[in-house]
């Protein structure tokens, strides 16, 4: 009996905290779906409207921004998957001088991430003439220490005997990697891809510095330009634009909630 009461009490506390936690977001949702006059004024039967979303979509080239973000994420993700796989495999299955030192050197990037080094990376980028390009935004992120670390840990768990058996059968290094290691690491690739996509979808400071023109702006920078340039912009429009730009991630999260959480956890513990 007390057990049951206890559970109800804790459940109530949890739901209250969850409601409190959701409040800022729900307030923004309320405003985005209502006319401007209701934005600070709660009437339970206020008419819902999608007008704000249409208006915001028209007011700035959001379709272009979305496309830029997708291109950016694709470049980074493809490069990451290929390059990190190669480096991790080299560390796991080959012997070479300075291996430990090189690995430590790579791991430095976990601490000193590219965001910290915006000043010098901007100078490098302008020297090679890549300012204001999507590839320029992607460049510092093409190899990821986190990805290398994650894949190395995973590859280490693959039994050496499996590798040797394949080699005796006459498979080269490429085939061993592709047919044995990559399939066994599939869940880790998925986890890494999810983390990486959400990181680059959300990244703001570096793209803000690198881009000047709308043609290359990712969604985050586009949103900030939209929300600040016109000082007279209505709150309902800003909130609609904010939700619109994050909608793909939110919808993906609600659909894949379980896998997302499980994969984030895997990425964390390994």
């Amino acid at each position: 009996m007390t057990q049951g009461l206890n559970r109800i009490m804790w459940s109530t506390i949890g739901l209250l905290l969850a409601a409190l936690w959701g409040l800022p977001f729900l307030y923004s949702v309320w405003t985005a779906f209502h006319d401007e006059i209701y934005s600070a004024n709660f009437v339970w039967n206020a008419p819902l409207t999608l007008e704000n979303f249409f208006e915001a979509w028209q007011a700035a080239p959001f379709a272009l921004y979305f496309l830029n973000t997708v291109i950016l994420i694709t470049i980074v993700l493809v490069a990451n998957l290929i390059l990190c796989t190669l480096v991790a495999y080299a560390f796991v299955r080959y012997r070479f001088r300075w291996a430990g030192f090189l690995f430590a050197l790579i791991m430095v990037q976990l601490l000193v991430s590219p965001e910290i080094l915006i000043v010098e990376n901007y100078l490098t980028l302008s020297k090679i003439g890549m300012i204001d390009t999507i590839l320029g935004i992607a460049l510092p992120y093409l190899t990821s220490a986190f990805g290398i670390f994650l894949l190395r840990q995973t590859f280490l768990t693959v039994p050496v005997s499996l590798d040797e058996a394949a080699q005796i059968e006459g498979a080269g290094a490429c085939r061993v990697l592709w047919n044995i290691y990559v399939p066994l690491a599939k869940p880790v690739y998925l986890a890494y891809a999810l983390v990486s996509i959400s990181f680059h979808w959300n990244n703001f400071l570096w793209p803000l510095i690198v881009t000047n023109s709308p043609e290359v702006r990712p969604v985050t920078v586009g949103l900030s330009v939209f929300a600040t340039v016109e000082s007279g912009v209505e709150w309902s429009l800003v909130n609609a634009a904010t939700l619109m730009t994050t909608a793909p991630l939110i919808i993906a999260f609600i659909i894949f909630q379980r896998q997302f959480v499980a994969n984030f956890m895997r990425a964390g513990i390994k």
Binding site: T242, L243, I250
Partner: peptide
Amino acid sequence: LPMIAVANI
């Protein structure tokens, strides 16, 4: 959510 969206909210 991106930090920028969080900031707007």
